[in-house]
Design a protein around this nucleic acid. Structure first.
Lengths: 153, 153
DNA sequence: TATTGTTATACTCTATAACTATA
DNA sequence: TATAGTTATAGAGTATAACAATA
């Protein structure tokens, strides 16, 4: 059918906003925002990543990267190190306390995922995940930021 | 599977944000934001709705309702009328040109929906839509009432 | 006293342009 | 010249509190 009576895009917008708000709320006790948590995960997975590369992965501009890193660095969760090969660029690394924070974030993210998926069974989630990944790939969204723990396959 | 899946909520957040951004971009030529489009559609469906009720339907606060309506009224797409029964409240109505704008919005929203669904076949979309609706219902998101501003027609 | 809408304020996120220091 | 990062600024969206008119 070419006349779309379905409301997929609308449902995605609704559920996506709800997921983001719920995640923000879940991690608020750790005094980090979703932006900061996303950056922490990325840096944990790719230590030494440059700010430019981080911005591309996260889909945000350079000035937003600066703001997020300023916040994280001020709380001593990450540090910027000037690259030896190209002194214009900064390599971002987790500190010990950043690594500890990331470890605390993981179970919260898992619980968050469970609250969003508990109403569907395993087969349904496999279908849903496959379709969402197909859509995300077709839309050119990068998907690797979140897969940094045990489910890399 | 007992290991928590950690990708569905993330995919929803990513795709939801992408859907919202794409819709904004699609309607930009009409010089309306997604907030304004959502309000227009609500008022089209429920002429005479009060600002308070509109805010509840759209999931935004009173001051946001004022800002969106100020914008729409300034462009003569809607008008506020004091309620005869309760002179504290305003009843919102589309103007002729607001109705015309709403009619132009509809095919754009349909094209937007197709853009987000063209990579899946009909059976896959049926599955996906059913699962998303199950999730939305479990999350307490209304399927009939539009609670956020990133709406399609 | 409570409610509807308004105004004011502050904070987050996004986007852009100008600037610096390197290359 | 071009690039990586920084700074400044502006806009949209959100949240909250104080306020006027009305109930």
């Amino acid at each position: 059918m070419s006349a779309p009576r379905r409301r997929i895009a609308f449902l995605l917008a609704q559920l996506g906003a709800d997921a983001t708000a719920a995640f923000e709320k879940a991690i608020a006790p750790l005094n980090v925002t979703a932006s900061e948590a996303g950056m922490l995960r990325l840096v944990g997975r790719q230590p030494g990543i440059t700010q430019k590369a981080a911005g591309e992965h996260l889909g945000v501009g350079p000035s937003r990267v600066v703001a997020v890193l300023d916040q994280l660095e001020q709380q001593s969760y990450v540090e910027r190190r000037r690259s030896a090969s190209d002194r214009r660029s900064h390599e971002i690394h987790l500190t010990t306390s950043g690594t500890r924070l990331l470890a605390k974030l993981r179970p919260i993210a898992e619980r968050h995922e469970r609250t969003f998926t508990e109403m569907l069974n395993g087969a349904e989630l496999d279908q849903l995940g496959a379709h969402l990944e197909t859509m995300a790939a077709a839309r050119g969204l990068s998907l690797d930021v979140h897969r940094n723990t045990h489910d890399r396959s």
